[in-house]
């Protein structure tokens, strides 16, 4: 109840009722669908806990309950899925983080010269950089990975003679190499776009103050550019996490690799459900954290 206005003694008009329009019904039906799916998924996944819980409870049960509990335990011939593969998922998760982290880092280092070459006035620099970026952005990551893993594998004698075979022999190094090249092309474009976005006035102002070009770039242009680039960088990290799932195809036990291994041994569909839950959690957490960081770093820009 809202109190009447003390001055006029008039009550405010009642809030408009929201009638059951078609949109409202559709919305509720869809939400019910999501809720039911969510609850179903939860009970499905919690089924894992039945055996350990009953085993814990067994000493405290008696009579009918004891019989029921031991019957239920007997139906589980093997340990629960989570009991058997939980550790594997954790190690797979760590491998995924390692792949993504290293690739992003190397990619970032590589992207700086590429972006510089790409915005160079000299065609001899800008043309190859453009081709590089176009190639890695225009072809599927999976095809690039195959090209590097299986393609370079066939040049073993040549690679051995220049002492690089140890690198290309290892699937893990290959995937880091492939992903780094791929992300460096995307990051170079992000960087270039952000630097170009800074108005000429900033350069001119610095020049008027007598600052040298490198100082201007690192102290004035780059900090502003990184601010602009925050959002696309966040998107690139998420793309990389999602893309890293294809490492599983070339014998690496990342999160997806462990998932496939668990599925191929049990044919239990929850293998994929767990992977989906974990990937969604990573991506959502990262997105939220990144939003926070962005809001904090750009708080002086809010008008």
């Amino acid at each position: 109840m809202i109190a009447p206005n003390p001055r006029t003694g008039l009550k405010p008009p009642p809030l408009a009722k929201r009638p059951w329009t078609a949109t409202k019904i559709t919305g509720h039906v869809l939400m019910a669908f999501w809720a039911i799916s969510g609850v179903y998924l939860l009970t499905y996944l919690l089924g894992n806990l039945e055996k350990p819980i009953l085993e814990l409870a067994l000493p405290f049960l008696s009579g009918e309950w004891e019989v029921y509990a031991s019957d239920r335990i007997a139906t589980h011939k093997f340990d629960s899925f989570l009991g058997r593969y939980g550790d594997k998922y954790i190690s797979g998760f760590l491998v995924t983080l390692k792949i993504v982290g290293l690739s992003l880092l190397f990619g970032a280092a590589l992207s700086i010269p590429i972006a510089a070459a790409r915005s160079s006035k000299w065609k001899i620099l800008s043309r190859p950089a453009y081709a590089y970026v176009y190639f890695f952005r225009g072809t599927p990551l999976l095809a690039q990975t195959f090209l590097i893993y299986y393609g370079f594998g066939s040049f073993r004698p040549e690679l051995q003679s220049i002492g690089l075979w140890w690198f290309f022999r290892d699937a893990f190094y290959c995937i880091i190499f492939a992903f780094s090249l791929n992300t460096s092309a995307y990051q170079a474009e992000i960087l270039r776009g952000a630097v170009q976005n800074i108005s000429r006035g900033q350069w001119e102002g610095a020049q008027a103050l007598g600052l040298s070009k490198p100082v201007t770039f690192f102290k004035i242009i780059l900090p502003q550019a990184l601010m602009v680039a925050l959002r696309p960088y966040g998107n690139e990290i998420i793309l990389m996490i999602k893309g890293s799932a294809i490492a599983a195809i070339i014998t690496i036990y990342d999160l997806m690799g462990e998932t496939r291994r668990a599925y191929s041994r049990t044919y239990d569909f929850q293998a994929y459900i767990w992977a989906a839950v974990i990937y969604l959690m990573i991506v959502e957490t990262l997105r939220r954290v990144w939003d926070r960081i962005e809001a904090r770093l750009t708080r002086h820009l809010i008008r």
Partner: peptide, 14 residues
């Protein structure tokens, strides 16, 4: 995924 891939990788020494 199939024997073909391991054949490729043992042939090139991976």
């Amino acid at each position: 995924p199939t024997p073909d891939e391991y054949k490729l990788d043992i042939a090139n020494g991976r």
